[in-house]
């Protein structure tokens, strides 16, 4: 079973929700074969490890292919720069420059070079770290600074976890990157249900709508909503959920203690055990939502 915690924008409390759900799941798991996994797919700024400390057991490099021009073969015809949709190549009269950070690895330039001067060579773009904490398997994807494309690192993270059988019978919780672009779609793909974290503000509502569009409308996933910093003020998020038939599975109040635990790097259910039943109920509801939708 794979559950993804996502939100339309950063800073809504996605990691807070994901870590506490995973810890609650870990407490329940029995027998080491059924260890739940928590994957940090927010690869541009992974931070799950700040809350759940783990023993690293493996690090896997993630590479991508970038074109390399053999200056001895290049005839400076300019074809490569012409075919590149991303302006990643400058073909100058006596030199051909490749800007690797703009390259999307489509391979067109190598394919089209009439002189066979371009080869594609692997270049590191990030890494996947795998480890274990008390009762929990942990995976983290990290995009190297300066790299623009998060999606391949997220794909690698999911793949490495799957390859090790983390998925199988046990529960996997994925902390998705914020937003609604390609990296989020990659994190959501293959999920059994998504929990969308938002705030009861006009901005929160706007971002929630966009996240619902991606998770429910585009990917067809069962979707639940978590309302964080719920001060009972703006009811528009709750009204929207009611109107769309989206179940609100978790509500966390606007509380100083919650913020303090978070900034201390403490998972909420560890710092404030009184929230444990809240997360247990949310996890059950999310699992039920996912199961209902199973064929």
């Amino acid at each position: 079973m794979r559950l993804v915690i996502a939100s339309g924008k950063g800073g809504t409390g996605k990691t807070l929700v994901a870590t506490s759900l995973a810890l609650v799941a870990a407490e329940r798991a029995t027998g080491s074969d059924a260890l739940p996994a928590l994957l940090d797919a927010d690869v541009e700024a992974p931070n799950v490890a700040l809350f759940v400390r783990a023993e690293v057991s493996e690090t896997v490099a993630v590479e991508r292919l970038v074109p390399v021009v053999n200056a001895a073969l290049c005839t400076h015809c300019g074809r490569c720069a012409e075919v590149c949709q991303f302006n990643a190549i400058a073909a100058l009269p006596t030199q051909t420059l490749v800007f690797a950070e703009l390259c999307h690895g489509c391979g067109s330039c190598a394919l089209q070079c009439p002189a066979g001067a371009i080869t594609e060579e692997p270049q590191p773009m990030g890494r996947v770290t795998l480890g274990q904490a008390a009762g929990l398997r942990l995976g983290e994807g990290e995009l190297q600074v300066g790299e623009a494309m998060a999606t391949p690192v997220i794909r690698a993270l999911k793949h490495e976890a799957q390859r090790r059988g983390w998925d199988g019978e046990a529960l996997t919780i994925i902390d998705a990157p914020p937003g609604t672009a390609c990296p989020v779609i990659e994190a959501l793909r293959g999920a059994d249900a998504a929990l969308l974290v938002t705030e009861p503000t006009p901005f929160g509502l706007h971002d929630l709508r966009m996240a619902v569009e991606v998770a429910r409308d585009v990917l067809g996933l069962p979707v639940g909503v978590a309302i964080n910093r719920d001060d009972g003020g703006d009811g528009s998020v709750a009204a929207y959920c009611a109107q769309e038939g989206l179940p609100v599975l978790l509500r966390l109040p606007l509380e100083r203690e919650i913020a303090a635990a978070y900034s201390d790097g403490q998972p909420l259910v560890t710092a404030l055990p009184r929230y444990r039943p809240t997360f247990e109920a949310a996890l059950d509801a999310l699992l039920a939502l996912a199961e209902e939708a199973q064929p």
Partner: peptide, 14 residues
């Protein structure tokens, strides 16, 4: 975009 705060300390388990 969004802030990248939060400290990316390396002295940690994972």
């Amino acid at each position: 975009g969004r802030g990248m705060g939060g400290g990316m300390g390396r002295g940690r388990g994972l």
